[in-house]
Each structure stands twice: as structure tokens, then as C-alpha cells.
Amino acid sequence: MTRRTWWSFLLGAALVLLLTGCSGLTARGEMKRLIDDSAAVAASDASRAVTVAILSPEARTILKRNAETFVTYRDAKTLNLFAYWFGGKQIYVSGKYAGLLDRVAKLAEVTAGSADAQTQEWLNAAVLKEAKVLIDVANARAGKRSEP
């Protein structure tokens, strides 16, 4: 093969790598583990919240923990590929997901902040709804569709 053919091959391979690696939300290291572990815990929380089985103090603790998790995602995200690989940021996102992470962090903070005044039914509903979004984040990372 000529040198030009090899260069074409390498360029094509790089293009394929770029295209196949283009998930809207990619995570590495600690954040990758946190996203997957939080989704697993959220699935367990959701199964109890659906029957309003979580007592209020525990539900408030869960909402606080979820808020911290969403804030961690927000602070770990970047739209800059160099910051992702070399700058210590561990979640690389598209503009769409960046906006969603900003919004959900704020929503979770406000939800946790208002939890003291709420009933057990409301708290369980909040835990259930937050769990769905934590699972959405894991699905985004895995490139999967979300459950309705």
C-alpha cells in the first residue's frame, strides 16, 4: 500500500472512533462509578417509595444525598474535551445534557431544602421522581433509552 493509502486508512479510523465515541454524556473514573452506583441505589429506593414505605427521616436523608449527587455531577461536567481528558473533569457532555445537569442540580437542592415541611407521601413521591432522573443519567451515560 502507498503512504497515501495508509494515511487515508488512519484518517478514516480516526473518523470512525470520533463518530462511535460521540455519546452526549460520557464519564470516566470516579464519576462513571458514581453514576452507575447511584442509579442502582435509586432503583432500590424507588421500589420502596412506590409503596410509600420510606419513613420521613430516611426520605429526607435520601433527598439530601440525591441533591449532593446531582451537584457533584454538575460540578464534574465539562463541554471541553481537553478539560475532560487533561483537566480533571470526569463527565463530558453535549450542550443539551449540560443544561439538564445544571437544572436538575438546582431542582434537587430546592427539593431537599423544602423537605422538612413535607408529608411522608410527598417525600416518597419526591424520592421516586428523583430516582427516575438518577436512572436517566445512567442511561444517558450508557447510551440507552429511558423507561417512561
Binding site: 437544572r103 432522573v133 444517558a140
Partner: peptide, 27 residues
């Protein structure tokens, strides 16, 4: 209000779902 906060979570979940569908199709 407290009920609006819960409704906002439903809206947020719907937005994540729509974004994930687009993302999965792209991949």
C-alpha cells in the same frame, strides 16, 4: 409550591427521556 416541585421532576424526567432517545439513536 410543593406540588409544582413534584411536577417539575416529571417535566425534568420527560426532558431526560427525550434527550436519551435522541442520544441512543445517534449512537
Amino acid at each position: 409550591s410543593a406540588d409544582t416541585l413534584l411536577a417539575e421532576w416529571d417535566t425534568t424526567h420527560a426532558e431526560w427521556k427525550a434527550a436519551n432517545d435522541v442520544n441512543a439513536d445517534k449512537i
